[in-house]
Each structure stands twice: as structure tokens, then as C-alpha cells.
């Protein structure tokens, strides 16, 4: 379990102190795939670097399995880091070593015998699907393959925690999915706790069980992915979950409402039944809907009819739907 308590990080700059992280509190349970999302500059990378003390917090605690990392001696910290692996956006492989030697590296520095390390490295390369690239150099591999080697390397020290710092941001969409699937698989099979830093909500949807939203160094909200995604409570959360806001038709709607699906419901039947049951036709102004673990989440922006009576009927109907929340959008500008 990782507990972050009142974590603050400030950097001195020429214009005074820059507060990168402000009083962050977070608990990450064992076995979770925890996403930390935010726009660039939100402090995500700084936060994840505090989890293995690549960045030393200005104040606060990072407690991993009951041990406060900041209180460890240099030697103890080095030992602790061997159980917290990290993968990076730019892969950060050793370019002068073969893939096999890259995977051997964490074992080499930990003093594992060479023959043993090689055998284990081969196994790991098989795990990530690249046994035939053992003697290749990283430059000969594609981005996705390099990240696979990096993942194999990160597993070499039998870590309990895997930190992913924008691990798929340099990859194309298909490779991204493959890598995410691999990470998810590792999480399930080996029970490794995964912390994913990303600015892409799609990554969170794909693999995370929990999510925290970070904005300008402040943790805005946190919880299970489906909770946060179905109904983001903060402005920062909404910006991230519905980045494009709404895509719009011109229309003459007097009132606009946003309905949010909280899972268990689907979209078309609702709009259809609204028409059938109430005889009210609404205009779909925009929709951003997602499918998470087989359940429907997302939001839809509806333009209600001009007629106040019909509009009221529609509002009443929508309010009574299970798994749907509705709010009036007052500052809507088509």
C-alpha cells in the first residue's frame, strides 16, 4: 500500500517559489491500477517521482508498506527502489547494451549471478513477447518493442510497484493498446500495484481501477474510475473527462440540459422512449459516451423543445430515470 500524506513540493525559481504539488493526500491499495491524470504541468510527473524519491518532497510523507521513504538512509532507499520499478515515455533503455543485457541490468546491479540473470532475462523477454530480440540493440527496435523491453527490465527486480510515467504517450494508438494490455496483464498475473501517469483519459479507461485528477498541483478528486468518470464533481474533472466539451448543431432550443449516464443504462433507448412515452422530441446537441468494463458512461447534451410544457415533461421524465443524473446548462451558447 502506498500512502501519500500532506505531500508538498516546491521548486525555487527566479520569480520565487513554484508550488508544484500542494498538500496531496492519496492512498493506493495493493493490486490497484491507479491512474493519475491531469493536463501537462499539473504536477503528475513530480508526484510519481516522489513515490521513489527521484524527487524529494518538500514536506509530507510517502509511506510504502508502512515505511516512510523520506526517513530511509541512502542504502535503505536504494534497496527500497529495487522493489519500485519505473517505465518512462522515452523508454530510457541503455543504448549501448543489447536487449538481453538491458533486462539483466537491474539484476547485475543487485549482484545476481550472470548465468542466473541471463536465464531470468530470457524468461522476461518471453513474457513481453520479444524472445527473438535478445541480441538486438534498442536502436533496431520500434517504439512499442522498446517499451516492451523496458517493461521486461522493470520486472527483473521482482517489484511490488510499477510506476508508468506517460509510458504510452510516445506510441501510436494500436501499440498503446498492446502495451496497456500487457501492463494490465502483469497487474493481474503478478499482482503488482501499478501507478499510471497520463494525460490521456483513454489510457485510464483502458486499464485503471482508480483515478486521481490533478490540476495545478492540487488533487481535485479521486475514486474508482467509474465513479469519477460518470460524474466528475470538479471543473478540472469535467475538463478532462469531456475534453472537447460539446460538439454542436445550430438549433433553437430554449433550455439545454446535460444528462449523465452512470452505468447500467444505454443512450438510444432513453431518447427513443422519451419520444414514445412523452411524445417529446429532444435535440441531441452533443454526446461523449464511453464504455467502461461493459457499462455505459458519459454525458449527453440535450436541447429541449421551445414549448415550456413539453420541456417540463421531458425534464420530469429524465429525472425519474435510474442511473441518469440531469442538470440544467444555463450558460449554453450554441
Amino acid at each position: 500500500m502506498i500512502e501519500i500524506k500532506h505531500l508538498c513540493k516546491t521548486f525555487p525559481t527566479s520569480e520565487g517559489e513554484f508550488h508544484a504539488l500542494k498538500d496531496i493526500n492519496l492512498t493506493i491499495e495493493d493490486g490497484a491500477v491507479f491512474g493519475i491524470v491531469g493536463m501537462s504541468g499539473a504536477g503528475k510527473s513530480t508526484l510519481v517521482r516522489c513515490l521513489n524519491l527521484l524527487e524529494r518532497p518538500t514536506s509530507g510523507q510517502v509511506v510504502v508498506d508502512g515505511k516512510d521513504l523520506c526517513a530511509l538512509s541512502q542504502g535503505e532507499l536504494i534497496a527500497q527502489r529495487r522493489s519500485i520499478s519505473m517505465i518512462f515515455q522515452q523508454f530510457n533503455l541503455l543504448m549501448q547494451r543489447t536487449c538481453l543485457k538491458n533486462v539483466c541490468f537491474p539484476m547485475e546491479i543487485a549482484g545476481v549471478k550472470e548465468a542466473q540473470a541471463r536465464a531470468r532475462a530470457m524468461e522476461l523477454l518471453e513474457t513481453v513477447g520479444l524472445p527473438d530480440k535478445a541480441e538486438s540493440y534498442p536502436v533496431q527496435l520500434s517504439g512499442g518493442q522498446r517499451q516492451r523491453v523496458a517493461i521486461a527490465r522493470s520486472l527483473a527486480s521482482n517489484p511490488k510497484i510499477l510506476l508508468c510515467d506517460e509510458a504510452t504517450s510516445a506510441l501510436d494508438p494500436k501499440t498503446t493498446r498492446d502495451i496497456l494490455r500487457l501492463i494490465k496483464d502483469i497487474n493481474r498475473r503478478l499482482g503488482i500495484t501499478v501507478v499510471v501517469i497520463t494525460h490521456e483519459m483513454a489510457v485510464v479507461e483502458e486499464i485503471c481501477t482508480h483515478v486521481a485528477i490533478l490540476d495545478h498541483g492540487v488533487m481535485m478528486e479521486t475514486g474508482r474510475v467509474e465513479e469519477v468518470f460518470s460524474n466528475p464533481k470538479t471543473e478540472a474533472g469535467r475538463r478532462l473527462v469531456y475534453p472537447d466539451g460539446v460538439v454542436i448543431d445550430r438549433l433553437s432550443a430554449a433550455r439545454v440540459v446535460r444528462i449523465v449516464f452512470n452505468g447500467g443504462s444505454s443512450y438510444e433507448p432513453l431518447i427513443a422512449s422519451l419520444a414514445i412515452d412523452c411524445g417529446v422530441k429532444v435535440n441531441i446537441l452533443g454526446a461523449d459516451t464511453r464504455n467502461i468494463d461493459g457499462q455505459a458512461f458519459g454525458s449527453m447534451l440535450l436541447g429541449l423543445p421551445q414549448d415550456p410544457q413539453e420541456a417540463a415533461k421531458a425534464v420530469g421524465y429524465l429525472k425519474n430515470q435510474p442511473n441518469v443524473t440531469m442538470e440544467e446548462v444555463r450558460d449554453y451558447h450554441g
Partner: peptide, 20 residues
């Protein structure tokens, strides 16, 4: 980035110089 990766793996400063 590679130095950071080495640090994250628990390299001592000497190992970072000598092996990275």
C-alpha cells in the same frame, strides 16, 4: 532520462558512473 532510470532501479552513484 537514462540516468533517472538507473537511479530508479536503485543504482549507487558509483554504479551509475561505471555501468551507465
Amino acid at each position: 532520462g537514462v540516468l533517472e532510470a538507473a537511479q530508479s532501479m536503485g543504482c549507487t552513484p558509483f554504479q551509475i558512473v561505471w555501468k551507465v
